[in-house]
Amino acid sequence: MESLSNKKKVLEQKPLNLAERLYLPAIVKGLGTTMSHFFKKSATIRYPEVEREFSINWRGMHSLKRDEEGRERCTACGLCALSCPAEAITMIAAERKAEEKHLYREEKYAAVYEINMLRCIFCGLCEEACPKEAIYLDGPIVPSDYLRKDFIYGKDKLVEAPLETK
């Protein structure tokens, strides 16, 4: 029957002729192809020393942001933890005391904020869920380590460096 799409290709299986049965011409051709690759520049990037260029919306390690006065933006609402499909985020909320006003923007803040980098799939849903613009996946590649416990990143690793006081 006529093929409607006309894309079908019927392959004919011809018996090999003498040159093909000897394999040698094809082998010589193949050797030429591989040799031409021998002198090409390799595509490898030596990772720890050289990093490849990332796209602008690339998602790396999380960072907890500060506002323009250097106070932590996070209010420990838990929306990031709730939105996380991998359940990588946990936190413990605490109430801000009067003398801590310069440290935390909201009245409630995250006393403990932990992300398990082995669970995290870097989907960026926490970033989308955050109402306070407190978390962004704008960091570098999460480095490798030896122990599982070392992949649970606390506030010491996540919170942005404090602003320089001028």
Binding site: T34, M35, R46
Partner: peptide, 11 residues
């Protein structure tokens, strides 16, 4: 093998 496949090999 690495050079023939546009890689670097053990370095």
């Amino acid at each position: 093998a690495a050079f023939l496949q546009d890689r670097l090999g053990p370095d």
